[in-house]
Design a protein around this nucleic acid. Structure first.
Lengths: 249, 249
DNA sequence: GTCCCCCGGTGTTCTAGAACACCAGGGGAA
DNA sequence: TTCCCCTGGTGTTCTAGAACACCGGGGGAC
């Protein structure tokens, strides 16, 4: 009954508690703005120490699911909202504009079943087959972005025959397949890196990062590629010179 | 000698330790890639418990100053790199493009001395006087962005005479002062929110967010405004439709 | 009536110690 | 020689308890 609660399973106790609370919030048992039980009571009800419970809350706070206020309590946070404001262009990939030493390493290319998000983006079923190309871009030797590209099976079959380690993906599409990207929709958010992404990028798990999700379409309007890119926030900034004719602020 | 080490001053012990380590890294005593002493040794040398030391490391990790690797050690992280890739336009402010109910609340306008970053951006000395205008933008009642605008004293004197609660800052500049923004330089990064920013935005401290820093110049090339904007990453996403003529990725 | 202080409740910081979990490399077995 | 295990070093998770620190509101002082 002492020490090391993680003994039962494999995942740490505090992560399990976080997951339990996450579910309560997602399922609606805890509505936005509602106040949670106080930490000591929660700790007791989960059968852990205050310190352990706080680690769970820490996780949830980083995910913006809760908000802790000293002297007041712990509250369920408000839900997220999307916006559509920026002119964003070529965020994913293509870091080479500045004459830095950019290297692209092919981590792998394999076929797999798409998860829900990828399937939706490419207009496929969950049982479909997609080619997953994973690349790591480094600048001056520092890992800079982790890019996973998903291509529908029909296109993937042709793509894998090319030497992806040497030829950029967009050139393979253009020269080998005659596919030209005409339109794309990109979503950029600020997130935390997962374990795997963090490992590949050589930075700690949970680090804040830009996450870009982009669907590219050919001239006929058919989805060609779904790109999913992570760029650690500490080693990356977007800077841009702007020229106006109109207003500002 | 027991409990509550924070008794000495006012700031928590672990924050002091973090600051000490931060200095060692900044001053170069610890070079990028170097491995720190192991946690137990560090704890002893700072005269605190392992748990307390770990809290300090947690802070540094969030700032990307160090990187912890299970089984290996704690390392000084690589320095950050800037890039210049995006076409970013009107990130700061101006959330109104979508017909949502946007409200701007004036939190305050006061004169103060600029910190180093603001002074540099506006080409002023640290002893100069700047007008700080703080505004909170909400969409559908949800706080969306916290914007601090810094204006050089000479401009600020005229600006404060206008009713900033009613008139957008850029209109004050344009109509009242005849100042038109011709050019700007913007930097967007993914960061964690500080206590104050988090409080204003109604989200937990440490939350990941977009941070935009923008310097705007008039036609003569003189800096007019330095805008500093925070937008929580959980309730905000950048989505954009793109149209290409050239290549992709 | 108005102001201030104090109090209960809640989150925060810290201790001292124990038991894992993960990784690299060396030494022994095959 | 090659492979595997095992060991030492390092970060991680957890306990049980104690003392702050912060906030809002109620009650007393004026």
């Amino acid at each position: 009954m002492n020490s090391m609660g993680g003994a039962n399973g494999r995942i740490p106790r505090y992560q399990g508690i976080a997951e339990a609370l996450r579910t309560r919030i997602r399922e609606g048992a805890l509505r936005p703005g509602a106040r949670l039980d106080n930490q000591r009571r929660l700790a007791t009800s989960f059968g852990v120490t205050l310190m352990t419970l706080r680690q769970a809350l820490e996780l949830l706070e980083r995910e913006h699911l809760i908000s802790r206020r000293h002297g007041l309590g712990t509250f369920v946070a408000a839900p997220s909202i999307d916006y559509d404001i920026l002119q964003l262009r070529r965020f994913a990939g293509d870091l080479s504009a500045k004459g830095e030493r950019v290297a692209t390493r092919l981590l792998g290319a394999r076929f797999a079943s798409p998860d829900r998000r990828v399937a939706d983006a490419l207009g496929l079923g969950l049982g479909a087959r997609v080619l997953v190309v994973e690349r790591l871009r480094s600048v001056d030797g520092h890992p800079m972005s982790l890019q996973r590209s998903f291509l529908p099976g029909r296109i993937g079959d042709d793509v894998v025959r090319a030497d992806l380690a040497l030829t950029p993906l967009h050139l393979v599409l253009e020269h080998e397949l005659g596919v030209v990207i005409a339109r794309a929709r990109e979503t950029v958010s600020a997130v935390r890196l997962g374990r795997r992404e963090a490992r590949e990028l050589g930075c700690p798990a949970g680090a804040p990062a830009f996450e870009s999700e982009r669907v590219s379409y050919d001239a006929a309007g058919a989805p060609v590629v779904f790109d999913h890119v992570f760029i650690p926030g500490d080693r990356f900034r977007i800077t841009r010179e702007l020229h106006y004719e109109g207003a500002t602020s």
